[in-house]
Structure formats: structure tokens, C-alpha cells
Amino acid sequence: MGKYIVKSLLQMVPVLFLISAIVFVLVHVTGDPVNLMLPETATEEDRAVLSKALGLDRPLYIQFGLFLYNAVQGDFGHSFHYGQSALPLVLERLPASFQLAGAGMLIATLLAIPLGIISALKRNTYLDLFISGLSALGKGMPNFWTGIMLILLFSVILGIFPVSGKGGPEHLVLPAITLGAGIAAQMTRLIRASMLEILNQEYIRTARSKGLLETIVIFKHALRNGLIPVVTIMGLQFTSLIGGTLVTETVFSWPGLGQLLVSAVNTHDMSIVQAAVFVIAIIVLAVNLLTDIVYRYLDPRIKYS
């Protein structure tokens, strides 16, 4: 187990290296970094100072080396918009994003597991058709529109929840539903398929033919195994969770990492963009590893190779 984790951690290094290379190439080769990093109002002096500070007169591979050297130490440069070091600004936004992502994932799971199971058990009935319709709708509705429609209904017309911002738990409800609905739609389909596969297995037929109660067959035999792939599914949904968080935070002015990143892109605040990309990439890699470990723990048939 320990050996496997170490090996996986080592495998992350080339991926992180590739990501940093991509970001570096994008920022340093496709445009003049000085122009990208400075606001349009910067003076010639500012440009000259920054150009020298960045070492832009040196060969490209030395620049890349320096970039990596600084990045490893958590130094992504200063944000011109906030006048502070970029990494702390990014880290400071993480708790709000985690809160939103966690609540969204919770709602998605609470919706998708029962709906997926019911849909599989009542396959080809009107109930199944209705649930499939719902999940198709969830897939077709862009989540920023879902968010806006929720604001229209619950904030503007009914006045139950606040329109935007962060405060008490009531501020979290609409953004979490917005984020959770889209993910629930995908998860429901996958859980349904996973349950259907399990229900066709021999041991389920055996359990049924033994005369066991259907509830015992479903909850003790089928569900336990049917939920194993769900862990992987939840892990896989994580990248779409991050994409969804970006948009949802913008819709609801939720002060998380996504909102910071989108505004940084709009204002060309490249140090924040770089820092945010790194932080998110590391989180994604960590979650992938965690998913893998949990999956292997749940299903002992998989060997650590």
C-alpha cells in the first residue's frame, strides 16, 4: 500500500512538470509577459523594471528553470491588481470554494444514489423514464442558467434566499443546488448502469432463488457492490465539479477561488492565474490518488501493481 502511494506520488511529478511547461509556454512564448502581467496603464519605467526583474534577457531554458525554481517555493510573483504575493491570495480563497464544492457534492450524492438505484430497480417503468428525463434535463441545462433561474424563482419572486454573496447558511443553498444538480444528473445515469450490471450477476440470482427477501438482496447483496464504482464516479466528477464551481461562483458572486481566477483572467493578472492553475492541478491530482486508494480498499480484488 505504502509503496503504491509513493509510486503514484512520483508519477505526479512529470504531470506537474508538463502542466508547468504548458503554463510557461502559454505565458512566455505566445505573448510578451511584461504586457500580459502589467495593467494597460503601466508606464515605460514599470515595463523596464519588470522585464529586468523577470530576467527576460536570459535564454528561454534558464527562464523556465527560474520559473520552476520559484514555483516550487510557492513564489508565483506579485499580483498587480491586489499588490500582494499571488499564492496567499489564492490559498485564502480555498475555504469558500471547498465549502461550496462540498455542499454541491453532498447534494449531488444525496440525489443521485437513491434516484440511480430506483431507476435501475424500476427499469423501463414510467418512474425510470421520468428519472432519465430529469437527468437528461440536468445535462442539457448549462449550470449558470440553472443558477439564474433559481435566483429568479427563489430570490426575486419568492424572496426566500439571498440573491448572491456569502454569509449565513442561507447563502449557500442556491449555489450548492446549482452546482449539485448538474453533477447529480451525470451520476444518476452512471449509478443506474452500475446497479443494472450488478443485478444481472449470478450471485444476485442465487440470492433471489434462495428465497431471500428482495430488500435483503437489494441492500445487502447488490448495493454494497453497486456502490464500489460510485466512488470512482465521484472521483471522476471532481474535474467537472471544479469547472462548475468556477461558473457558479461567478453567478452568485461567491468569494471563492473560481471568482478570483475569472476576474484575474479578465484583468490579465497572470501571477494569480499561474498560482491558481498550480493549486487546482495539485488538488485534482491529490483527489485522483485518494479516489484510487479508496477504490482499491473497497474492492480487494484489485492488486497494487
Binding site: I22, V27, T239, V247, L261, V273, A281, V284, N288
Partner: peptide, 11 residues
């Protein structure tokens, strides 16, 4: 795969 698509697009 490790970078969420939208992140790459933003950059």
C-alpha cells in the same frame, strides 16, 4: 485530464 478543461481554456 489532470487539468480541468475550463482551467486550460481560461489560461
Amino acid at each position: 485530464i489532470a487539468i480541468p478543461a475550463i482551467l486550460f481554456m481560461l489560461v
